[in-house]
Amino acid sequence: MQVLNAVYPPPQQAMDFFGGAEDGPFVMVNLLKFKPKAEYADGSDAHLTGAEAYARYAEDVRKLVEALGGRIRYGGQVTGLLIGEVEELWDMVALAEYPSLAAFQQMAMSPQMHAIEHHRTAGLAGQLNIRTRPGVGF
């Protein structure tokens, strides 16, 4: 299995994701890797770590998720690996629940999201976003 972190999806991958079937609520698993130092395009806040820049984004995105009827279920630092092998561990795992794919897309395309994305870009070295459907198999 090849794993490639990215900050933004390629256009075709985004179109395939948002063009998928609407099947109700889902939980997005976010595997996050931070830059050692924040990299803002305007050079500001160079004293911040990538994790600190991302924390600015996370606080505001939590409000957006809650406003559309979702919630942040969990966020935690990665501290070890029991099974499997990866070249480098992610720094953090976050689980966000959304009421629907349409609600997630609405949030992702909103002016409010656009206004905070610079914190995400400044802090993230890469990530994986994995859409999951609750209640299957457990």
Rank of each mutant, 00 (worst) to 15 (best):
M1S: 02
Q2Y: 07
A6C: 01
A6N: 02
Y8S: 00
P9N: 06
Q12M: 10
A14M: 15
F17M: 13
F18I: 10
F18Y: 13
G19L: 10
G24E: 12
G24M: 15
P25V: 08
P25H: 08
F26L: 04
V27S: 05
M28N: 06
V29L: 09
N30I: 11
L32E: 03
L32H: 05
K33F: 02
K37C: 10
K37L: 10
A41L: 07
D42A: 04
D42L: 05
S44R: 02
D45L: 10
D45M: 07
L48H: 09
A51H: 09
E52D: 03
E52F: 02
A53C: 05
Y54T: 08
A55F: 05
A58H: 07
D60V: 15
R62D: 12
K63Y: 01
L64Q: 12
V65C: 11
V65M: 07
E66S: 11
L68W: 02
G69Y: 11
G69W: 11
G70T: 12
R71N: 09
R73V: 14
R73K: 09
R73E: 12
Y74R: 14
G75I: 14
G75V: 11
Q77D: 13
Q77N: 10
V78E: 08
V78A: 13
T79W: 11
G80Y: 10
G80L: 11
G80A: 05
L82C: 08
E88C: 12
E88W: 08
L89P: 14
W90T: 00
W90H: 00
D91P: 09
M92V: 03
A94K: 03
L95M: 06
Y98P: 00
P99L: 05
A102Q: 03
A103F: 04
A103E: 00
Q105T: 02
Q105S: 06
Q105W: 04
M107N: 07
M107T: 10
M109K: 08
P111H: 00
Q112L: 08
Q112K: 05
M113I: 07
M113V: 12
H114M: 10
I116F: 11
E117M: 13
H119P: 15
H119L: 12
R120G: 00
R120F: 02
T121E: 12
A122C: 04
G123W: 00
Q127H: 13
N129A: 09
I130C: 04
R131T: 13
R131D: 14
T132R: 10
R133L: 04
F138Q: 14
